[in-house]
Nucleic acid binder design. Structure first.
Lengths: 215, 215
DNA sequence: AGTCTTCTGTGATTTTTGTCACAAACAAGT
DNA sequence: ACTTGTTTGTGACAAAAATCACAGAAGACT
């Protein structure tokens, strides 16, 4: 493992105890994902716990007809809670993980991950905390779908997108519509409304966000 | 602990190893929930892992305005995955657990639950399996909300209800509407359609289900 | 400049869902 | 049998969202 990655690891996962970090460095492999590349689903990581040391991953759901919706984003220092849980992937639940930016993921063989639960308190806490956090985010997504209209869901979507990217959303209306499993025209119209309130400024292929709480 | 409960426990959680069952019997308390009574939210079980030995619990989500939707049901032999995860409940996520029938829940102090993860392989597996299973169910719910129209969601709802109760759904249209966070009239109309296809027969306060796959 | 493609804006229309209003059916109790 | 309250059925209407149909704008490429 190159020293660049070592540094990343130490920085991003500083809450883990030193002996554990040493083990991770020694026993895990790193995989670089190019922008747009898909983790999981290739069948090779399913027996691994996945940590993200660099980049940005998006975790989303896809149904038979190709509709999708965003579950949440993973940032460096996060673990893919699903990868911990779904050792015996039974195909039918289509969760996809895609690299938004070029990313480095750390693959920990799941037997080690399990072993460490007992051996390292900090690992145990980390795993539990990861579950919790993802679950909470998933519930927020769920809420917005179940209780809110598309206008509020769009704002929720933009807000979450901002948290992980900059102040600009570099997506076309089409892409946004797809991630909200809606249609392009509807999103365009809603965005237009947002622009009229001064919350955003629309450009081709990106949206400049000023203040989403104006609405 | 009375011997009646001991038997229930042994039966419902037979996948757990004997020494663990002994510990559970010795160290945990049982609480009986009356029909309609709420677990959690009273603040007293938040430091406990909850197992269900008898009855039926429904886990649902509620927003500020009182809208709700069903996440999943828990049957005897199941654990409340949330209770394992949410040791430090931070109020804002409103998950509610309500007894559908009179139920007995087993409260395990969370420090023991943690300890056992390392000590008992079967406990570890049980906990992981619980997470997985609940997560899967939650995703199914999510799918039906995100991708399906209300008609399909209703069918999904009825199907899941059947799995835990009998072949009859003993609920008013109003209650169903509430659990799908829709309105009574709409549910009534959709049910009427289902009746016309021969999938169900409607009665006052209960729905007789024949075959939901007819649709 | 001119051609292409992709993205965005907008009107018109339809479908789905929610709301309002009110009647009929049913059950419970007196 | 007669209130009373709850549940269900329905028509009319409003709102939200999806779909269709095109036109114009912004880049990309010759």
């Amino acid at each position: 493992m190159e020293s660049k990655n070592k540094n990343d690891l130490l920085q991003k996962f500083s809450q883990l105890e030193q002996p554990l970090l040493d083990e991770i460095l020694a026993q895990s492999t790193i995989k670089r994902l190019e922008e747009g590349e898909e983790a999981l689903r290739t069948g090779q990581y399913i027996k691994s716990t996945v940590l993200l040391s660099k980049g940005l991953l998006k975790v989303y759901r896809e149904d038979e007809e190709g509709n999708e919706f965003l579950m949440y984003y993973l940032e460096p220092g996060n673990a893919c809670a699903l990868s911990m849980m779904c050792t015996a992937r039974d195909e039918q639940s289509q969760i996809r993980v895609k690299a938004v930016d070029e990313s480095d993921i750390i693959l920990i063989p799941s037997h080690l991950s399990e072993l460490w639960l007992a051996k390292y308190k900090s690992w145990h806490n980390f795993v539990i905390a990861s579950y919790r956090q993802r679950f909470e985010e998933l519930l927020q997504t769920l809420d917005s779908i179940a209780f809110k209209g598309l206008d509020e869901r769009l704002i929720f979507y933009l807000k979450r997108h901002l948290k992980v990217s900059g102040k600009e959303v570099k997506l076309s209306h089409q892409q946004i519509a797809h991630e909200l499993s809606s249609s392009r025209e509807v999103i365009s119209r809603l965005l237009k409304k947002l622009e009229q309130t001064g919350a955003v400024t629309l450009h081709r292929n990106y949206i400049e966000v000023h203040d989403l709480d104006l609405v």
